[in-house]
Design a protein around this nucleic acid. Structure first.
Lengths: 235, 235
DNA sequence: TTTGTTTTTTGAACGTGTTCAAAAGAAGAA
DNA sequence: TTCTTCTTTTGAACACGTTCAAAAAACAAA
């Protein structure tokens, strides 16, 4: 039974953890310190969270939840694909901003089998919600892409955004200026690329890309499949 | 003084570690187990290696050293850019093959500040040797690229290769078939892209790419700079 | 050989994330 | 209230990576 008090304790621990993380950095923060700050025993943290890193994950999920409406509203207003992508990505930068470095604790997991990896089946639902934003951004926009590539576009854009965020997390430059330039330039490049995607010259690239995407994401456009991991494998 | 015996003990520990890693996997292998297998006390490992992960790094360096001549010989023989790139990349897959999963222990570090990150200043010399291979591959090949992009090509190809390897490390498919397809298709795509890079239609992309690369790598083509990290920042 | 110096090895101890049996508390049911 | 059951909390204990003072071994100079 989900009692009120229990949920309160959970957030108290989460909040305390975020404080300590911000102060000491993720690695130097100790569970005992966090527990003390939350006014509970060390073991209590493990009643609510699977691991130290899972606390960061909880923060991530919570942020994602809070971003949802904000992104929805933004997408409502903006009309062009560029505006929509900017809405999604900029919102993330803003919301994660105060805890930017914290995300470094999660980016340690490239392994899709690790529960906390952005590509794991455990994080599938978070990821799917996220990809949905990009689906909406692409939907009824003027992009004309070959039918065998278009279905993958939202996932590719999500991947792009993950890369951007990763760069951002470790960007030491003032106000993460370098990330902003990366953002600006690469976004333009993507839009230009989508714009000229129709020219016959690029046909060979399309073919290759389509073949590749089908294998990597293991899906034919229109077919159904139970894909759980971000880059599904059928081993 | 570097005694013979000392070096021998070091490799004994390294070899024992690799055995245990292969058997138990990196995470489940314990230092005490490794030390026991090497016939030394637990602390001894730390006389020779900075950390458990540093042992994997040592393996990486050693492999890199062994690959060098092999790649050199291969580059000598092959004439086209495609052949050269295949030589470099395939050699890596072959050499790392038996210890593929081990590299996962290193890929945990996206943080360029971490000593064991592929992008850190500590690993700069390894990285530079590696990038040299790609320089040789590009050198006196028929690729015609704008002068403001071409200098970055070796580093971009190195980055591409790192991505491939990362995918490979976590590829569960039989014989890493999916990675091989990714390899095949993306390599073709890169070659096609380089081939058509000259057409005027792509001019806007060139401009954006050049501006971006200059900021990210912090270098003007021809200027000197003391870049230490893989994606240098001037904060 | 003896003495002094440097390199190597040891293993106990530390700090940390994590586990878990047991205690404490909350919520009904009587 | 008292008994029962479920949830929450505790804190000692564990395993592991790592440190380090001290012992041992190797070496150099006399």
């Amino acid at each position: 039974m989900k009692t009120k008090k229990s949920e309160e304790t959970r957030t108290r621990i989460l909040e305390a953890a975020l404080d300590v993380f911000r102060e000491r950095g993720f690695e130097h923060a100790t569970i005992r310190e966090i527990a003390a700050a939350a006014g509970v025993a060390a073991g209590a943290a493990y009643y609510y969270f699977e691991s130290k890193e899972a606390i960061v994950m909880a923060f991530y999920e919570r942020s994602q939840g809070q971003m949802g409406p904000q992104i929805d509203a933004g997408l409502e207003k903006s009309k062009t694909l560029e505006d929509r992508l900017r809405t999604i990505i900029s919102t993330k930068f803003e919301c994660f901003g105060p805890n930017r470095k914290l995300l470094g604790a999660l980016s340690a997991h490239a392994d899709p089998d690790h529960p906390l990896s952005p590509f794991s089946k455990e994080t599938a639902s978070i990821r799917e919600v996220d990809i949905q934003f990009f689906s909406r951004a692409v939907m009824d926009s003027k992009v004309r892409l070959p039918a065998n590539i278009k279905p993958y576009l939202p996932r590719l854009l999500w991947m792009y955004q993950m890369g951007l965020i990763l760069f951002w997390v470790y960007d030491h430059s003032k106000d993460q200026r370098r990330t902003m330039i990366l953002y600006e330039k690469t976004l333009k490049m993507i839009l230009v690329t989508l714009k000229i995607a129709g020219v016959p010259l690029l046909r060979p690239l399309h073919r290759l890309a389509a073949e590749l995407l089908e294998v990597i994401y293991g899906e034919v456009p229109g077919g159904e499949s139970t894909q759980k991991t971000a880059l599904s494998s059928e081993d």
